[in-house]
Amino acid sequence: MQSIISSQKLTKEFQSYKKEPGFLGTLKSFVSRESIRKKAVDEFSFNIEEGEIIGLLGPNGAGKTTLMKMFTGIIVPSSGELSIMGHRPSDRDKQFRKNIALVMGQKSQLWWDIPAMDSFLLLQRFYEVSDADFEERIEEMSTLLGVKELLNVHVRKLSLGERMKMELMASLLHNPKVIFLDEPTIGLDLVAQENIRQFILDFHRKNNTTIIITSHYMADVNALCERLVLIFDGKKAFDGPISEFEKILGSEKNVSFTFDSSQDTAAEIWNDRDADWNENKTVVELRIPEESLREVSLEILKYLPVTEFNTEKMPIERVMKTLMENPEILRNCEGSGENMLCR
């Protein structure tokens, strides 16, 4: 079966001009301009099957949004192939546009001066949704998201969280086959984030929609995605299941223990475990190989005055942070799993 999204060596190059600051700089730039070419996305290839939820990760400026813009047909790639549901997005034919949705957390797509319901009614016409479907979906989504009372309030009077929920509703009204979510939970409080994640999961379960999501919140990725694609400097750096991603830096588990009194940090048990103590010597963080996790933990719990015991909740957060701080890890990744693309 053909993948629902497939991209081959997709590249986008931007050209911009250098300009020195100030008035003189402006005059100079009239005479001679130095142009800078930058590849925002560089030979990016991947395939996505129907119904997958993909987390697209990378630091700011890595090219995530540029990719999303190419996927939705907003900008035209400089070179390479891209096919989504058999369409080339940059052709922007109506059949393609009818079957995708884009949610931008940073940007409102709803009209500011009118109630969300008015926007929804307009979108209903744009996407040719029948009245019955429309009413059913509005009813269902607004109940799930808890915004039923707010449908007729002017959008500019909504809080960020409420507006984001409306944005989500607006982009899902036409039951798209592929959804692009660009930082959908940015700036939201924890409860709203949680609501939105749950809602996306429900929607996915019911409709088997293909979803690509970018986010800087690892909690989003952890809750929603099974597969991660990492992009660094416009190039794909990792593509594979989350479980593989967690092991990029090795398969050790991070575990922390809290004790009711100061401990002897020189004891043998801490050797070779990357022990990281707090000042009072009452809390320690250890890295323990997966296979000896049980044995080592048992020993500590048995012989030392442990009051608290934690294993790491989101290893991907640590991996992500380490990679962003030391991108050279990705360059020297010989011998790692098949998902790694070393440069």
């Binding site: 813009k69 939705t72 047909g73 907003i74 922007r92 109506k94 546009r97 009818k98 995708i100 949705a101 884009l102 931008m104 940007k107 797509q109 979108l123 016409r125 744009f126 996407y127 040719e128």
Partner: peptide, 11 residues
């Protein structure tokens, strides 16, 4: 860059 949303609508 605000015309982006209009580029996505099938209108």
């Amino acid at each position: 860059g605000r015309i982006s949303s209009y580029l996505i609508y099938p209108f």
